[in-house]
Every structure is written in structure tokens, then in C-alpha cells.
């Protein structure tokens, strides 16, 4: 089963199975967007009611958030406005209204000063095919203000760091997607930026490469103090390595804050994973339904609303009654997926 991701069209919530109960309301949904005041001076990126239009098309209509140090996920379905937002953070396009500061400066007016301290890894993989990875990374480091000798040394260091030390002189056209993703990460960090923006850095990677890339991004943030904005439509990877998240849908902020703030501290039910066949699974579901509990299930995993002692006891009793083993029985916390579904549906 693939990682949970956003639905293709932003406004509609993912379809729920017929047996599923409505998604529970999150106990906390991050910072109240409407209550955000003036742009925060402590935030790396601070947006207030940012809007951007291209002719009659509104790409972003009202985005407000503060991105704090650490790793922050910029989440949204395709077309939600993530890439437009990244473009405005880099200073590629001016905002039409609202206020946006990046590292304390207006990215459009102070473009060169801001971009010198930013690293950026684009989403696409079509880098110059005949150029060696080392030449490419060195060139980008020089563009960001490093003297030639320093850029040469640091390009090599960055490529070693991302695991391409032995491959660093290879033309990028001969590299795999995973290797090109690493080259893009290396060029984003080689000039020692304060903040890097990674646009879908795991796109095209297999599960092992994806895990490795996520570990690397987390390592860069924690070991070298480089703050990261990770644009992604994959909820679980953001949940895995990010400290905070901004969720954008249809050009507006749906939720923003630290992951703890977004998910809340409370639980929203229990998760029960059984060792049994479909008949036993349905029997357990029926047993719990008959006792007035809202139950959803997916393969062998059953989600039950409520987390008091009685629910745990009933889940245990249901398994015992139908002769199914218990693989896992634990409290279930609100996930980013729940927050997203609630916000989109709500």
C-alpha cells in the first residue's frame, strides 16, 4: 500500500468507505489562522493574507502562516498553490496583496540578498545531462556568492554528504532519478544557506530511496542547523520528519503550526489490528457495532471511536468471541490526514 497522499482535486475530501463513520473532529488544529497578527520577526517565513493571481486565474487567494526554525512541510494537493507559494518565497514573482517576509526581508524587493541565503531544489529531474554533478553543484554554489576555491571544495563535500562522493564527476544525464534527487539536494546546501526549499524531494524514488532521502533531509536540519521547507503532497513523509506543517488547499491556508499543535494532544479512538480472516474481521466489526461503537476498517486494521477502558475491553472481548488474535491494540492519535480531511470536509 502506498503512502497516504492528498486527493487529486483539492476541494473534495477523500471518499470514505460506506462503513466508515465521519472523521472525528481534531482536538486542536494548529494556530488560528484568522488570529495571526503582523508578520512575525522570529519566523523564517511569515505570510499574511497573501494572494497571487495570473490574469483571471487565482493561484493563491488568502495564505497566512509563520514558518519557524526546523523542518516544515508545505502540504497540499496538486494545484493547491504550493509551488506558487514557493515561487513567491524565492522572490520569483511579486505578491498581489498581503505581506510576505523571508528571513526578515521582502523577497521580491530584496531578492538577491534573500536568495543568497536560500537553497532551492526544484521538482523536475531534467538537469543539464552532459554536465558533471560536481561542476553543477560548484556552479550553483558560486552563483550564491561562494568564491571559486571554496565552491569547489564545498561542492565535493556536499556530494559526499548526500552519498555521491564516488559518482560526483559523472554526467547527470547518466544518473538515476534517486541520484539526481541527491544532486539537487547537494546543490541546495553547498553554499551553506540558512533555509532550503525542497520541492517534492522524494518524487520518483522507490521506498528505500525515499526513506534514505527523508533521513538525509532530517540529518541536514538537525546536524547542520539548515532549516527546511519541504513541499510535498505525501502526508506521511511530512509527519515523519517535519516539526511543523502548513496545509494549503484551493489557495487558502487550511491549517498551520507545529505537528503537535495540528494533531492536538488528545486521542481520537483506538486502533485494533487482528490476526484472522475476513469472516472474523467482519464478526469483530459487527460485535462492536452491536454495542453502539462507531467502527471503520481497512484490511486487518479496525478503528474504533472512543478510548476509555470500556472500548478496550470490548475490543478484546470481540476478538476473543470470534477467535481472532490481536496483533496490535493501541490508542490512536489524530494524524495529519485526519486534520486534512477535517479541514477539507469542514
Amino acid at each position: 500500500m502506498g503512502p497516504p497522499s492528498f486527493p487529486a482535486s483539492a476541494p473534495s475530501a477523500p471518499p470514505l468507505p460506506a462503513t466508515q463513520a465521519p472523521a472525528p473532529a481534531p482536538t486542536a488544529t494548529g494556530l488560528p489562522i484568522a488570529a495571526l497578527g503582523a508578520p512575525s520577526s522570529s519566523a523564517l517565513v511569515s505570510a499574511r493574507h497573501v494572494a497571487k493571481r495570473y490574469g483571471s486565474y487565482t493561484a493563491v487567494s488568502d495564505v497566512s502562516f509563520d514558518i519557524q526554525p526546523g523542518v516544515t512541510g508545505l502540504l497540499g494537493a496538486n494545484g493547491a498553490g504550493k509551488t506558487t507559494m514557493l515561487g513567491m518565497i524565492i522572490g520569483l514573482h511579486p505578491i498581489d496583496s498581503g505581506a510576505l517576509t523571508v528571513l526578515g526581508q521582502d523577497p521580491w524587493n530584496a531578492g538577491a540578498d534573500v536568495r543568497e541565503r536560500l537553497g532551492y531544489a526544484p521538482e523536475h529531474h531534467t538537469l543539464p545531462p552532459d554536465l558533471g554533478a560536481n561542476d553543477f553543484v560548484r556552479h550553483i554554489a558560486e552563483l550564491h556568492g561562494l568564491p571559486k576555491d571554496e565552491a569547489t571544495t564545498r561542492a565535493s563535500d556536499a556530494l559526499w554528504l548526500v552519498g555521491l562522493g564516488e559518482e560526483r564527476f559523472r554526467p547527470m544525464g547518466t544518473m538515476s532519478t534517486g541520484q539526481r534527487q541527491r544532486v539537487k539536494l547537494a546543490q541546495a546546501i553547498a553554499h551553506d544557506p540558512q533555509l532550503i526549499l525542497l520541492d517534492e524531494p522524494t518524487d520518483g524514488l522507490d521506498p528505500l530511496q525515499r526513506d534514505s532521502m527523508l533521513d538525509l533531509i532530517r540529518h541536514i536540519a538537525t546536524e547542520f542547523g539548515i532549516h527546511v521547507i519541504l513541499s510535498s503532497h505525501l502526508l506521511d513523509e511530512v509527519e515523519r520528519i517535519c516539526d511543523g506543517a502548513v496545509i494549503i488547499g484551493d489557495g487558502v491556508t487550511l491549517a498551520a503550526g507545529s505537528l503537535d499543535e495540528l494533531r492536538g494532544s488528545g486521542t481520537i479512538g483506538i486502533t485494533l489490528e487482528i490476526d484472522g480472516d475476513d469472516t472474523q474481521l467482519h464478526a469483530v466489526v459487527r460485535y462492536l457495532n452491536d454495542r453502539g461503537l462507531a467502527v471503520t476498517f481497512d484490511r486487518r486494521r479496525i478503528t474504533v471511536e472512543g478510548d476509555d477502558e470500556r472500548v478496550f475491553d470490548l475490543a478484546r472481548d470481540a476478538c476473543a468471541a470470534v477467535g481472532a488474535g490481536i496483533v496490535r491494540l493501541n490508542k490512536r492519535r489524530l494524524s495529519l490526514e485526519d486534520v486534512f480531511i477535517e479541514r477539507m470536509g469542514g
Binding site: L92, T126, L127, Q187
Partner: peptide, 15 residues
């Protein structure tokens, strides 16, 4: 433009 390098350049101090 074809290789996407323009986007990389415009994310540097260049405009």
C-alpha cells in the same frame, strides 16, 4: 529553459 536551469538560476541572486 528546456532543462529547467532557468528556475535554478532565478532561485539564486540573479533575477
Amino acid at each position: 529553459r528546456r532543462t529547467g536551469m532557468l528556475g535554478v538560476y532565478l532561485a539564486s541572486p540573479l533575477n
